[in-house]
Simulated assay, not measured.
Amino acid sequence: MTAAPARFRDLIAAEWIKLWSLRSTYWVLGVGALVVIGINVNSAQSNADRLAHLPPPPDGLEPHMRFDPLHTAFVDPAWQILMVVAGSVGAIAVFGEYTSGLVRTTFTAVPDRRAVVAAKAAVMTAVMLVLGAVVAAVSFGATQAVLRDHGGLSAGDPGALRAVVASALLAPLCALVGMAVGALVRHATGTVVTTLVTLILLPALFQGETHRWVKEIGNAMPLSAWQALVENPAIGFPPDTYPVSVAEAWLVFGAWPLLAVAVTVVAVHRRDV
């Protein structure tokens, strides 16, 4: 008698158990979230203390010279930490099965590798979306509460909701990129380093303004797109050469997850364990 093929909801349940059976998942996600929120709140408190001892800004001051309360909720180093955390967890979800040998058992039980990858991606996306949403909402709410006497914003202010949504989506995006890198590299150190380089270091290498193609490559990176989406439209900045538009940034946010899942599926399907 031939066994019935595994249902997709069974694969979802299996991937959920795999993810949460590791104690490191709780620690990495929990500590990472607290660190990101802590850095943002500390930035807001530092700015509030400084602004309390400064005279009001003079009339006619250029917008980009004014204090930006939105920026305190989305400090670059803090969210880069979240990118590394999410990317690393996504990578571990793939290369961890190869290094432990669990992948042989998985593919023996479920020969449909595409379905396994789809289930893993679905679980990872759901978990990281919740993580990103919590961190983004708490960071925004807490920092703006600290800055309530210094121009703190509400969710209805221009650019605020967009920044929160983009920051929430940043976590699953990075996790899926980590999965793709894990499927390609399949080595713990190499995967983590490659994920770090892809998400954090490459955007810095393509920030030159001498050649348009250099800047355009940088604009296509998730970090650059996120920075454009969390920019406060009420503040504005001096015009940049070849800037990232909001529409282009959302396209980047949509393209990277799709490409990452496609790479993971192809890599897992074509390469033997």
Rank of each mutant, 00 (worst) to 15 (best):
R9Y: 11
T191Q: 06
A168K: 00
V41L: 06
I12M: 12
N47R: 05
A220N: 09
A171M: 10
F95A: 00
L11N: 00
S224T: 11
A142Q: 01
I217V: 14
G141I: 02
F253W: 03
E15N: 11
L205E: 13
T125C: 11
V214I: 15
T241I: 14
A86K: 01
P58S: 13
L153Q: 05
L34S: 10
A3P: 07
D68L: 03
V244S: 01
N219Y: 00
P111G: 12
V117K: 00
W250N: 01
L251Q: 13
D149E: 15
A262C: 14
G90V: 01
A180W: 02
R270G: 09
E209R: 12
A188K: 02
F107Y: 11
A118I: 10
E209Y: 09
A13Q: 10
P58H: 10
T99K: 06
V138H: 00
R186T: 00
L196H: 01
H211S: 14
L153Y: 05
R148K: 15
T25Q: 07
A119L: 01
N42Q: 15
A6V: 13
L258S: 11
A13I: 05
D112M: 09
A109Q: 15
A93M: 12
Q45N: 09
P63T: 03
R23K: 14
V265E: 01
T105L: 13
S21H: 10
L196P: 04
M124K: 00
H269N: 15
F107L: 12
P77L: 14
V41Q: 02
P5G: 08
P238D: 13
T210V: 13
G254H: 10
G190T: 07
S245M: 09
C174L: 09
G254Q: 11
V103M: 09
V164K: 03
R50K: 13
D68N: 08
N219W: 03
R50A: 11
T210D: 15
R9S: 13
H187N: 15
A3H: 15
